[in-house]
Design a protein around this nucleic acid. Structure first.
Length: 873
DNA sequence: CACTCCCGCCAATTA
DNA sequence: TAATTGGCGGGAGTG
């Protein structure tokens, strides 16, 4: 008994041995055990003990007497089951103990209770599927092991598999960072692509390289071939640099897990038998296939399968073959992300089951940057998470830095993604896409590099969202969602709606509005150059955004985006994440009216919802302007987009979404983190027409902007585009009076100013007035943008809040006013209001529901934010 | 008996 | 060198 106590007492480390020994020794005296066992039980919860120790003890005790097993079982079960609820369990335990020793004995938990799958579920239950971007959840192996009552070895099994899917990344010794499933779809997509390359032959498949091609652009296949290795490598070691090298070790479980997943993704049937998987994996390994190896492989596959099962990605099934029934696993996770562009366009409307996937596909790519950005970025690079494994990690030690890097990378990724989309959409046309990124000229490289790794994690998730728009957009139901759509259930990733992007990690997000317009793309360059890098960063905006409103036009690019609820959900979810603050609204869709009103008009918000900020878009698609805009847009669209979509169609569909006038999209930065760090980017180009606004007011901004983490940008100055200048001033039509306000002067700003952001500060001042918009305050927050906008926008206007008008909504920041920048301060407010929910909620589900209601959300949001309504003309 | 897969030794890596 | 990771396979639990 004493011993036990000790063990309990023992600090973290598992005393495993001791217990064991004891048990063994004791074996003789089973009888006593009963008592001890009880104690043990207690421990788990309260004490950090090692679970195993307990088990051992129990076992020893139990062995003698089986009689009580049953009781014990019960007891144990609770314990095991109880993931979190400590108390209860404890209580139970205690009770049990007292009551009976017997129980203990009974059985210890059955084997099932101790299974890796169950353990993994407990593990997963501890963390949110879609953590806010901002917060980083670190996982302490020791802590988790003690809490879950298992030995550390088991945790490694879980973590290694999760790491292979980028759900977690190793930060340091004993420390892992939880990313959640934000990037899951991207990761899966990458794996799918990689799998096709590697195993395509084996299994047939659907996708082809196209995707890759798109993604990679240049790279494509060439490299791909190796891909296997690479991929794996990449995955495993994202990190950077060099890392690659590394660890050979990395091999196993992690890689095996990825390969295993690849097999599912490549498989038509989505069913993979263990023996086949084992054979394939062994071959790859090169090893000769000896029987023992095979057995070992299978053992490992079971380990992996248990974790994947816990993740809900596969389920156990049996395949009856000629010979008989064989154990197999069926993939039940998302599958189709595949689609890349094609899909997007083509199917955009519907997001597949997994919206995420779709999204992913689009984004994925880092490649996007075709030229500029990362060219290479194939996912390989990208994949690596920030996490970096040991090796890599070592390099960057400081967490902070890492984060920054992450941001950067995220940004980059976004940009890339956007770019890709754009490219895709237009491929040639430069323009068109709603968003455009900024091109970053040379920088890109720089950016690029970083991206890959870091970005992914966070970004990816987000990205998808963004992208979604396209695909999704069509769906339309919820406007916002689009992007998000991808996500499946609650997952959502970030932003659901297309309108913006969120970056998880960072705090900012983007919104994109309609962007469609073109501008972006081209523009970028301009800015870019100068701009700087920022430009690079560029993120681009997602075309998708447009969708909604733009839907009409937008469509193409994004297509539809759609917003769909998913997005909404996501948004919400995201919110939770928070980082983003904004979230956007989705709503637009709904109200058609909005259109008329263009946004603004509504000040009501309704539509506006949003956020709309509008920025947007460039184009103005917004409703109001819509018409004119539309034309323009359409034209553009047509140009850009291309064929894909028929504009019209999109419109319809989207329509709902579309209805709304515009959707603004923009990026947002999250406060929390401190905005300060971020910068915004706009696309330079935009301007042109886009912003210009259409005549109507709407014009909001087209801006495509991106926010970049300051760090990232750092080097850059901001970018503004040249253009801007004056222009804006005028607001467009009446829409917004606010506009006037809006006008920011960006020009001044614009010019180069670099970033800025300031949400608050900037804006406020300026605009203050903004009438409609602000609900609360002058809101202008939007303004902040202005600078950005300005430039590009010059044409554009911001709506009130933002600028121009139009309906856009902006968010206001809190304080806008005066204070200069304190974004942070601002944020908070926003956050709470806006985001809060999501964040607070945590539950995705809830949010989802909301999505449906988006409108409502929006409204609320608007209020908070203040959106500008636009006005009608 | 076959399927699962827990358990933990112990080597490889890291710190 | 100590600690952390994680490959590996014996062998037990299940059905």
């Amino acid at each position: 008994e004493n011993i036990f106590d000790r063990s309990r007492m023992a600090p973290k480390t598992p005393i495993k041995n001791e217990p064991i020994d004891l048990s063994k020794q004791k074996g003789c005296t089973p009888e006593r055990n009963p008592i001890t066992p009880v104690k043990i039980i207690d421990r788990p919860q309260p004490d950090p003990w090692t679970p195993t120790a307990n088990l051992k003890m129990l076992v020893s005790a139990a062995s003698p007497d089986m009689r009580d097993r049953e009781k014990k079982k019960e007891l144990f079960r609770p314990i095991e089951n109880s993931e979190q609820s400590d108390t209860p369990d404890s209580l139970q335990y205690d009770i049990v103990d007292d009551t009976t020793v017997d129980e203990f004995e009974k059985q210890r938990p059955s084997r099932k209770q101790k299974s890796l799958g169950l353990l993994c579920q407990k593990f997963l239950a501890r963390y949110p599927n879609y953590p806010l971007s901002t917060e980083k959840t670190t996982i302490s192996l020791d802590e988790v092991a003690s809490v879950l009552g298992v030995e550390r070895r088991r945790i490694y099994d879980i973590v290694n598999v999760l790491e292979s899917l980028h759900l977690v990344s190793r930060v340091a010794k004993n420390q892992y960072c939880w990313h959640g499933r934000h990037n899951l779809s991207q990761t899966l997509k990458m794996l799918q692509e990689a799998g096709e390359l590697q195993y395509g032959e084996l299994m047939t498949f659907q996708h082809k390289e196209q995707d890759l091609e798109y993604k990679f652009g240049e790279r494509k296949k060439e490299t791909i071939p190796h891909s296997q290795d690479r991929q794996l490598l990449d995955f495993s070691e994202p990190d950077c640099s060099s890392a690659s090298a590394n660890s050979r070790k990395d091999k196993s479980l992690r890689i095996m897990s990825q390969k295993f997943v690849m097999l599912f993704l490549v498989s038509k049937t989505k069913i993979v038998t263990l023996d086949i998987a084992a054979k394939i994996l062994i071959e790859e390994t090169q090893d000769t296939v000896d029987h023992s190896k095979f057995k070992t492989k299978v053992r490992r596959l079971y380990d992996i399968a248990n974790v994947l099962t816990s993740l809900g990605l596969i389920k156990k099934v049996h395949v009856t073959e000629e010979r008989g029934r064989k154990p197999a696993f069926k993939w039940i996770g998302p599958v189709e992300f595949s689609g890349k562009t094609d899909e997007l366009r083509g199917r955009s409307p519907t997001s597949d089951s997994l919206p995420e996937r779709a999204a992913c596909a689009q984004y994925q790519i880092c490649a996007a940057g075709k030229q500029r950005f990362t060219r290479h970025a194939s996912f390989n690079d990208a994949q690596p998470c920030e996490g970096t494994r040991r090796k890599a990690s070592s390099e960057p030690n400081s967490p902070h830095q890492e984060r920054q890097d992450e941001y950067c990378s995220k940004m980059i990724n976004l940009a890339a993604v956007c770019r890709q989309k754009i490219e895709e959409d237009t491929r040639n046309s430069s323009i068109t896409s709603p968003f455009s990124l900024l091109p970053v000229p040379g920088d890109s490289d720089f950016c690029v590099n970083p991206l890959p790794q870091a970005v992914f994690p966070v970004v990816q998730a987000e990205v998808p969202s963004l992208s979604l728009p396209t695909g999704i957009s069509s769906q339309g139901p919820h406007p916002s969602t689009p992007a998000a759509s991808k996500t499946e259930n609650g997952k959502t990733t970030l932003v659901p709606n297309q309108p913006f992007l969120c970056f998880p990690s960072s705090s900012f997000f983007m919104l994109c509005g309609g962007l469609q317009e073109n501008n972006l793309s081209e523009t970028l360059p301009t800015a870019g150059d100068k701009g700087n890098r920022s430009a690079k960063v560029e993120a681009v905006i997602p075309p998708a955004v447009c969708q909604k409103r733009s839907s009409h036009k937008c469509t193409s690019p994004s297509s539809p985006a759609d917003d769909e609820e998913p997005a909404a959900k996501k948004q919400t979810m995201e919110q939770s994440d928070l980082p983003l603050s904004l979230v956007v609204p989705k709503k637009p869709l709904e109200s058609p009216k909005a259109e008329s009103t263009p946004g603004i008009g509504c000040p009501s918000a309704v539509h506006l919802e949003t956020y709309s900020l509008d920025l947007a878009h460039p184009a103005a698609p917004e409703a109001t302007s819509k018409e004119s805009l539309d034309c323009q847009e359409q034209e553009k669209r047509s140009q850009n987009t291309d064929p894909d979509e028929p504009p019209p169609g999109n419109e319809h569909i989207p329509k709902e979404n579309a209805n709304q006038p515009f959707q603004p999209q923009y990026l947002y930065v999250q406060p929390t983190t401190g905005l300060s760090s971020f910068n915004f980017l706009f696309s330079a180009n935009q301007a042109p027409g886009a912003i210009s606004l259409a005549s109507n007011q709407l014009p909001s901004l087209s801006v495509p902007c991106v926010m970049v983490p300051s760090a990232a940008l750092a080097s850059f100055p901001l970018v503004c585009s040249p253009s801007f200048a004056s222009p804006l001033s005028p607001v467009p039509d009446g829409s917004f009076s606010a506009a006037g306000s809006m006008n920011f002067s960006m020009s001044s700003l614009a010019s180069t100013t670099p970033v800025f952001i300031s949400t608050t500060a900037m804006v406020t001042p300026k605009v203050s007035p903004a009438p409609s918009v602000d609900l609360q305050q002058p809101a202008h927050p939007a303004l902040h943008l202005s600078p950005v906008l300005t430039r590009s926008c010059s044409a554009v206007k911001l709506d009130s809040p933002v600028c121009v008008g139009h309906p856009v909504t902006l968010l206001k920041l809190q304080q806008p006013s005066s204070t200069p920048l304190t974004p942070k301060s601002i944020r908070p407010a926003h956050h709470e209001a806006f985001f809060k929910t999501p964040g607070s909620l945590g539950d995705p589900v809830a949010w989802k529901k909301n999505e449906g209601n988006q409108t409502r959300n929006a409204s609320s949001v608007q209020r908070r934010l203040e959106i500008s309504g636009t006005n009608p003309d």
